[in-house]
Amino acid sequence: MANDPAPDKSGGAVTTAPREPDAGFPDRKPEPLGLRIQHVLHANPILGPLAVLVLAIIAFSLVSGRFLSVANLGLVLAQVTVIATLALGQTLVILTAGIDLSAGAIAVFSSIIMANLATKAGLPGPVALLLGFAFGTAMGLLNGLLVTRMKLPPFIVTLGTLSIFFSLNSVVSKSETVRGSDMPDIMTWTGNTFGVGGFRITYGSIIMLLLFAFFFYALSRTAWGKHVYATGDDIEAARLAGIRTDRVLLSVYTVAGLIYGIGAWVLMGRLASASPNVGVEYNLDSITAVVLGGTSLFGGRGLVLGTLVGALIVGVFRNGLQLGGVDVVWQGFAIGLLVLVAVSIDQWIRKVKV
């Protein structure tokens, strides 16, 4: 053959010296530290929030000796339970590159519906709860229909329903708070506590943790979860791949509404009442927890466990700053600064070249 080595004069084949594997190729330089961190955070988005949470716990434990007390840590968990539950539903929506500004309004309105069905309509507590969950689900379904059928932007849709649900809330409640003592015990059962090694944990916290465990499995191990991520990452590519993206979006908003309805039950236990005058800050707090937890506002990337860490970050910061004697105004300033930093880091991580 033409490429065979020619024989030498002694009849043997000419041997070619082996080529050095790296001859002619310059040595590759190691990646800069910043780029390596960028790659690690892109592959493991929960690491950043966990680092912030650990550093915050260490810092506030040095500021106040009471911070790491069993009683205070139990209080922090109880305080973040409602926001974490609402943030779970918010996470599902944001994973699809949407946003839900009506989360707090749905939760508060659902709690008022439950309380009034149990007290004024005289329905048994379990029935009132189930109907309240159904109302929350229906409100989420309405958001989903407006987004998928009317093709309206999620921001505009949920901004509008935010006002609608809060207005209906005032009409139904007549701006009156329903006391827990007037309701069946099951309505405020989520606020009851039990002891675990010195900690006092509410049943509402257990419900919240079970919800996170369920949706962690659903998003990571089911076809529905994979479709949610695909829709948020690139909705057109997902549609071309055969995913019925409208159905996915509709299911996400509907399921989020159900989660907000369950959050209403947790809220009644936390307040030991059903008040129409709460929840104004719940929408922003739930979004804050999601963003701090590493879920991208542009969709397609994030973990529900990150949202739980994000909610804990908010609770730890507020509790720690309060123990440190920081004014409430500056507590809000610190949380807002954290959000800006988290979004900036998210933008930086998304620029990684894979």
Rank of each mutant, 00 (worst) to 15 (best):
L258C: 06
I235H: 02
N277M: 12
A223S: 13
M208L: 11
A241I: 02
I206A: 11
G263L: 12
R239C: 01
S220A: 13
V228L: 05
I207W: 06
T254E: 10
T254M: 07
L249P: 00
Y217W: 14
W224Q: 12
S275K: 10
S275A: 12
L240Y: 15
D246I: 02
G279M: 11
L249G: 00
V255P: 03
G269Q: 03
G225S: 08
L210H: 06
A274E: 01
A264G: 15
N277S: 14
E236G: 05
L249I: 15
A230Y: 08
A230D: 10
A213K: 05
R270S: 11
I235D: 06
V248W: 02
F214E: 09
T222R: 06
R221V: 07
V248K: 01
I259T: 03
F216W: 14
A274T: 09
S275W: 03
F212Q: 02
G269I: 12
P276Q: 10
L267W: 00
I262P: 06
G263N: 06
A274Y: 00
L271S: 02
A213C: 13
T245G: 06
A218R: 11
I235F: 00
K226I: 01
S220G: 10
A223T: 13
V248H: 02
H227T: 03
G257F: 07
V280R: 14
E236I: 09
L240W: 11
S251F: 08
W224A: 11
L240A: 11
N277G: 14
L210D: 00
M208T: 15
T222N: 07
D246L: 04
G232Y: 01
Y260I: 09
A241H: 09
G269V: 07
V278H: 05
Y217C: 08
L267D: 02
L211N: 10
F214R: 04
T222Y: 07
G279E: 13
Y217K: 04
T254Y: 02
T254D: 11
T222P: 03
D233A: 15
A241S: 15
A264Q: 02
V228F: 09
I243L: 05
I243Q: 08
L209V: 15
L250V: 05
L211V: 15
I259E: 09
L271M: 12
L271W: 02
I206W: 11
L267V: 04
G269K: 00
Y253Q: 06
I262G: 07
E236K: 10
G242H: 09
I235S: 10
I259G: 08
G242C: 04
L267R: 01
G279A: 07
T231P: 01
S220F: 05
S220P: 00
A272G: 05
T231S: 05
A230R: 01
Y217G: 11
I262E: 03
V228T: 14
Y253M: 12
L267Q: 09
A272F: 07
I259R: 10
L209D: 13
I262L: 14
R247Y: 05
T222W: 10
K226V: 04
L271Y: 00
I235W: 00
